[in-house]
Design a protein around this nucleic acid. Structure first.
Lengths: 211, 211, 211, 211
DNA sequence: ACCGACGGGACCGCCCGTTGTT
DNA sequence: AACAACGGGCGGTCCCGTCGGT
């Protein structure tokens, strides 16, 4: 069963873009047929319903987001670098979207706000992960003395995620990355203000660690 | 021409809630029929299409938002008070939504992100007004010396609106107002940090001006 | 009740054009509202149903046709002149329609062919009158010795009416009066061939009786 | 791809009757559902719209007409025989309709007269073919000396087609084939009058060529 | 005498999902 | 494993007709 698995993966991938671009209610199976080049039968062989496909498509999109954060944190050790890297990932979502249609978490979360959404629980979990990601980094930073002791990890997590998603929302609405960049600049300052300056003289601005 | 106008107004009002709760694509005319207690004929006599109704419903919801900001700014003179009041309005949207389903700007903006939305231009205009509201207040504050001269009105406007909407998004997603409160607290600090302290000793924390 | 009667007449008149241009099924009450400048209530005050209005509108149109034939026959005494005049009326329907949309008999008859039409019986009656008109003239002509004795009034009536309506059909289909003119020319010959030549030398081509 | 084609053909065939009997505006998709035994989904899978189906249905009906003329002309060589055969086909349309509801050209042409019809261009083309059929036969007859040299093919074509369709109109209106028969008789005479009598004595009345 | 509001229903088109057919 | 045919049903739109108001 190898060809089937590849087809299934392709469906999930393409459907993720369709759902992300049109919303669950606005995405028709016909549109997914067109995006995949398959017919109804070819899709419903792999998924029992539109709802199930939406769930897997969202999961795929969320995984793409996770990969970006994982890659960004992979070689960063200092808390400041790691936090700045996280903000950079959010900023990058606008100019180089992991899924067609922009940030899948934002799209799905907004549609989940009103009424019931088949992926609501998944979105909550993803958003929880996002906040947890920041919270853990901040908590570790406080523990290691890299961040000021009064810094509240929960607060920082909420502020970073909320502001970043808000910035993405503005940029996607106007198709102009300037907004998310303004927000990112603010968040970078916000982070720096909470860093414990170890060496006031030998400090570096190179947050990307490039020599 | 009185009864008709009242019915029409009721349709707009109820439809605003339905659209805000389900999105444009997810809101069926049947649902609006149920919400208004009217039949198809009674609705389509006043509106030529679902799209037109959606436009008027969004405009109504946006007006509710504008009213809140207008009321909040009505009796505030100091720039600091005014900015804090704006943040308070955003926070209040979660606990006491102006329209059923939460912040209409957020809902409509998110649905406008992906694909085309019949209210996209309207949402862009509303969001522009929101940013402009903050920007003008900040610019006036800088001009009157109440805010630090290096403060950039454009940046502040973007940060405040983005963070606030992001906080609302989180709170609506989890049905927990704690998130927007955390964000609001951050924004209050953010604002205070840019205020020029006139009287370091006689300062007061009472942002509402209540004695 | 004078103003009401005038309004009623105007509705009938305008509706006749709408029905004639769109057929009974294709003519909506909305279209008649637009054509008359009245609202639903203003129309249904005078007519109980669309069907009744259609009936009166067709009757009005048929009366316009009758008027044309009456006027054409008014001052013609010779059978030949009268028959040629009848053909001329048919020909004139194309270039100067008595009702907007062309010959009402043709339109209504064609729609009456298939299925049931609310004006079917009326159309049959009108068509009967048309044939009767020709038949009576021909019969009189035979009786007075102006037409050859072997001429069958029934046959002539059918041929004249059928050919004329067929010609109108072609002309209306192509929006080109040439077709009905070709048919009319044939019918003129057809008539002349049945005339008893009284005075082979003193004959005149002036079928219109103009000096 | 066999079952689908057969179903599609059945839809076209049945729909042709429904359209011919009720007109385009009067034929509902529900009626076609009933006539075919299919549901909406089964019909709209093969045709994108009612208009497209109407186009194909009319084309099918027009093809049935063409077949009749082709069959009638197949074994006729003499111009007189061919012209008489054409008239016979028109006459036969009434007693044995090629499509339920009578002559499809007449029905469609009449509905095309008023307003716009989705099949207007097709009807014009069919009517053009009908006239062309007669015109070509007549022109050949003149060329071969079987018809009088002064015979105008264009005029004959118009007269034959117009009179025939007019006769069919009358017969369909009254559900009485007598009218088209009277017209046909006239057309036979009309044709004979233009034939060049080769052998005044050995002439035959057998227009069907049957010995 | 006429307008305007509204009801209920039918329209066409498209939806999602299932089932036979390769 | 994928396609193509088809079933029901809901989508938005527009229909005709009634009735209260003025």
């Amino acid at each position: 069963v190898r060809k089937g698995e590849r087809t299934r993966g392709r469906i999930v991938e393409r459907a993720a873009g369709v759902f992300n671009c049109n919303g669950y209610a606005g995405a028709s199976v016909s549109a997914i047929m067109a995006a995949t080049g398959l017919q109804k039968g070819g899709i419903y062989r792999h998924f029992g319903s539109k709802e199930q496909l939406a769930g897997e498509a969202y999961a795929w999109a969320a995984a793409r987001m996770r990969e970006r954060f994982a890659a960004a944190l992979a070689e960063r050790r200092h808390v400041g670098d790691r936090l700045h890297a996280i903000v950079d990932v959010f900023e990058g979502v606008v100019t180089d979207p992991p899924v067609e249609g922009g940030c899948p978490v934002l799209s799905a979360a907004a549609e989940s706000d009103y009424g019931v959404s088949p992926v609501r629980e998944q979105v909550r979990e993803t958003m929880r992960e996002l906040r947890e990601l920041v919270r853990v980094v901040v908590a570790a930073g406080v523990g290691r003395g890299e961040l000021r002791p009064e810094t509240e990890p929960e607060d920082v997590a909420t502020v970073v995620v909320a502001a970043a998603e808000g910035g993405i929302l503005l940029s996607q609405l106007y198709e102009d990355s300037a907004y998310v960049r303004q927000v990112a600049a603010h968040l970078h300052d916000y982070i720096d203000a909470r860093l414990v300056k170890r060496d006031a003289m030998g400090g570096t601005d190179d947050r990307n660690g490039n020599a």
